[in-house]
Nucleic acid binder design. Structure first.
Lengths: 118, 118
DNA sequence: CCGTTGCACAACTTATAGGTTGTTTACTCT
DNA sequence: AGAGTAAACAACCTATAAGTTGTGCAACGG
């Protein structure tokens, strides 16, 4: 699950575009088809399709092949990776943020698994 | 301190480049001059200078005018903004991450200011 | 079986990103 | 004043990003 540098680049690059961030926001409310995602934008369906491909390469969404439509699903876990990358580098920058890092450790595993010691 | 959409774009775009991320990593160890930052890379000083300009526009570094050199300083706080953006959107995606959001609220203010209530 | 809908693929245009070389500015040192 | 060093500025090249139009194709719905 730990990312190589290129993954990080793809992720941040994907997040750098407002249209794509908007798409992610919409997907947060639930899975959606390409048409549904394209509708609010003053942009062709093809353009949105390209954006979705970028998001898919970045691992931020996945697409199933249901009949004639291709619903997109948000892969929210991938966003953890972004936060984690920042946190990991941030650790050296200010020890105050060790706590953020520790916190991320915790939320990445189910409640029950939390280590009481250490 | 809350970011407008364009700031977010600039930030993520700045983080999308491996060279720039590497520069940030180096700056984490302390302030450095352009020359020092350029040294490890197989790249001209001018190219690094451009990268620094991108990082500066994104608010991730600042530069003082000390004599003949221009030391760069990491503006780590700005990275909070990135994490915060993700967390804010993430909130709707899974309520499990409310805790991350709440945590960020806390670390963004000094220890002493923490609100005990609410 | 034929029209429509939902989406991807291909080719093209324009702008921007990332790099180069060449030059200029500004300070320091002698 | 003049040489050397630190870094920015300018013009240019090339690749890619973001959009377009046009087309193809698969799956339904009469």
């Amino acid at each position: 699950m730990t990312l190589v540098e290129e993954d990080v680049s793809l992720m941040f690059a994907a997040l750098a575009d407002p249209t794509r961030r908007s798409i992610l926001g919409k997907l947060a409310e639930g899975d959606a088809t390409v048409g549904e995602l394209a509708e609010p934008f003053a942009m062709t369906q093809q353009a949105i399709s390209k954006h979705l491909k970028v998001l898919e390469r970045a691992g931020l969404i996945s697409r199933s092949r249901t009949a004639q439509s291709r619903p997109c699903r948000l892969e929210a876990e991938r966003l953890d990776a972004a936060v984690e990358w920042i946190a990991r580098h941030r650790r050296t920058w200010s020890e105050r943020y060790d706590r953020l890092d520790a916190h991320l450790e915790n939320i990445r595993r189910p409640e029950s698994e939390k280590e009481p010691s250490k």
